[in-house]
Design a protein around this nucleic acid. Structure first.
Length: 404
RNA sequence: GGCGAGUUAGCCAAGUGGUAAGGCAGAGGUCUGCAAAACCUCCAUCGCGGGUUCGAAUCCCGCACUCGCCUCCA
């Protein structure tokens, strides 16, 4: 497997190893999911996991849920509910949507709210090392304490400061020593989630939870760290600073994989713009295979624009593939090997689909295993939804009081 | 302003040095009582200008335009 590393901008080999590949993917902030952009990101990593495992490479896949967050608090207030109820509900919906898209569950699916002790311990450590400082119950990461903050996004420190000042970001916060310093821990306002800490009652900042969960579940270094390209700065930049400072080991991630943004109606599909196409609105009309084909027709690094007719197009193509699938045999024929080769070349999914298309045309029948690499079912017998979820490993982990 | 991605037929889209996959739409045809379906055929010289090369959509330089990120967002 070869993958493009955002940090080095080079295609880098992910060599086979006896230990599991440590994969960490930034998950959702559960207050408004799952739109097609989310699906794109997680289907891409699903294919990565499938290809690695099919090659006999064990994988330990961690995907977090950032369920303590300003947006959740705000949205819960708007809806007249509590942050934890909203997060639970949305996380379950997300897991349902992923299962419906035939996305394998991660091995560990940790929530920020259940990682608070680890987060606090990490901040304590950073503070003791001089990488963080406390002011009035808030704790900030001292960006000046690391030499190369900005190396992932390739923004120079000067540029970041200039930008930060231009946007009037936080130079007003007199507690910060540097405008770029970011929050590790903050005082909770009334009605916000709160935990006891050495700095008083508060809640974690945005970036620290990912460092804490990655370190807890995968150790001081990960092989592949993924997420949407909108997370490069500041989120992943800050994760690097926190994690490498705490462990003294670098690089924190050997390969950074970032998935391109999906546009809709001319703009980035995003929760704040409300131009969302939700997976659960598509599923009554399109099967999972068709939706996956739509997504996988695009290379993961490419930003692209969704239009409904593309989905119809993908559905028509998928129908042809399904018709041909009934005549396939299980096995790794030339076509299946070509699909695998395409996927191992920086996840060239559109190339892989092209191989399948040629297989159909030429009458090749030995490509069934290749469809599985892409997570395409291509069969009619649909499992009952709950069975499907169980089979894929999504077990509705967030229901304390029973229910689905 | 910085960084990054992109520009291939009406639309979507593949294609990293040897004279442009595929799909949708469209046109014509086979079949059919008519229609549908199915199948067959037709339909582009690759944003613009230079350069390298025997040869470039593919490499290099410049330009134009589109889009994304820049502490809300996969």
């Amino acid at each position: 497997m070869r993958l493009r590393n955002t940090e080095t901008n080079a295609v880098q080999p992910l060599e086979p190893q006896s230990d599991p590949v440590r994969l960490y993917v930034c998950g959702i902030t559960p207050y408004d999911t799952t739109h097609l952009g989310h699906a794109f990101t997680y289907v891409v990593f699903d294919v990565l996991v499938r290809v690695l495992r099919a090659a006999g490479q064990p994988v330990r896949y961690v995907q977090n849920v950032t369920d303590v967050d300003d947006d959740i608090i705000r949205r819960a207030r708007e809806l007249g509910t509590t942050w934890d109820h909203l997060a639970d509900k949305e996380t379950t919906l997300y897991a349902d949507d992923m299962a419906a898209l035939n996305v394998l569950a991660p091995d560990v699916f940790p929530r920020a709210s259940q990682t608070i002790p680890k987060i606090i311990a990490l901040i304590v450590k950073l503070e003791a090392q001089g990488h963080a400082y406390q002011r009035d119950g808030n704790v900030y990461f001292r960006v000046g304490s690391v030499a190369d903050y900005g190396r992932l996004s390739r923004l120079s420190r000067t540029e970041m400061i200039t930008l930060s000042a231009q946007r009037g970001a936080d130079p007003d916060d007199p507690r910060k020593q540097d405008p770029l310093d970011f929050v590790l821990w903050q005082v909770s306002a009334l009605g916000e989630p709160r935990w006891e800490s050495p700095w008083g009652v508060g809640r974690p900042g945005w970036h620290i939870e990912c460092s804490a969960m990655a370190l807890e579940h995968l150790g001081p270094q990960v092989d592949v760290h993924g997420g949407g390209s909108d997370l490069i700065y500041p989120h992943h930049e800050s994760e690097i600073a926190q994690s490498e400072s705490a462990t003294g080991m670098r690089p924190f991630a050997r390969i950074w994989v970032h998935v391109g943004m999906l546009r809709y109606q001319g703009e980035k599909m995003s929760k704040s713009l409300r131009n969302l196409v939700l997976v659960r609105d598509l599923l009554p009309r399109y099967d999972a295979d068709s939706i996956r084909v739509l997504l996988l027709r695009h290379h993961y690094r490419e930003p692209w624009e969704y239009t409904p007719d593309q989905l119809d197009d993908a559905a028509a193509w998928t129908a042809r593939l399904r018709a041909a699938a009934s005549r396939t045999r299980n096995g790794m024929g030339d076509s299946a090997l070509a699909v695998r080769a395409a996927l191992e070349d920086d996840l060239d999914t559109s190339g892989a689909l092209h191989v399948l298309e040629e297989a159909i045309d030429s009458g090749d029948r030995d490509w069934r295993a290749a469809a599985e690499l892409l997570g395409l079912e291509l069969s009619d017998p649909r499992l009952d939804h709950e069975e499907m979820k169980k089979a894929l490993g999504w077990r509705a982990p967030f229901h304390n009081g029973g229910g689905s």
